[in-house]
């Protein structure tokens, strides 16, 4: 299990290759990469704030829960904080398992919990305006399917 919380940019492709190579006898690797998007074509910057200490604890708990729930060989979570631009990679998760279903479901689970249970907050800067991104009820509702 590898959990990284960092301000530095990272190469999601290289991380995925390293993760895949480090596995032994795993038949499946699933990954998700989150990218800063600019849906309204005015986003200048996205600032991500987090709670050092709690962030790592929360991510470790989410990853451990996934390891306990599915038959996984390994889990990788990388999440950035600080100032990001449109098209920058924000975060990635990867899961490895013997069969694909475990890796798929665990990656989906990790993303659902990472969205609303890991202490990150996004602020969007569009021109002169700055606004905190509101949480979505659908993200909260998504957690109920794992109960």
């Amino acid at each position: 299990m590898k959990i990284l919380v960092q301000d530095a940019a990272f190469d999601a492709g290289a991380e995925l290759n390293d993760f895949t190579k480090a596995q032994s006898n795993m038949g499946a690797v699933v990954s998700f990469t989150g990218i800063v998007r600019d849906l309204d074509a005015g986003l200048k910057q996205m600032d991500i704030e987090h709670y050092p200490g709690m962030t790592e604890r929360a991510l470790e708990k989410i990853a451990s829960d996934a390891m306990g729930r599915w038959n996984l060989g390994d889990v990788l979570v990388i999440h950035r904080f600080g100032a990001l631009k449109p098209e920058d990679v924000i975060m990635m998760v990867a899961t490895a398992s013997k069969h694909r279903k475990d890796a798929f479901e665990a990656a989906d689970f990790l993303m659902d919990f990472l969205k609303s249970r890991a202490p990150f907050w996004k602020k969007e800067q569009t021109g002169a305006a700055q606004d905190w991104v509101n949480s979505k009820q659908e993200d909260e509702d998504a957690l109920t399917r794992w109960e």
Partner: peptide, 10 residues
């Protein structure tokens, strides 16, 4: 103790 709005990670 920490106070904050609902989280928006991912």
């Amino acid at each position: 103790i920490a106070f904050f709005p609902p989280m928006t990670g991912g």
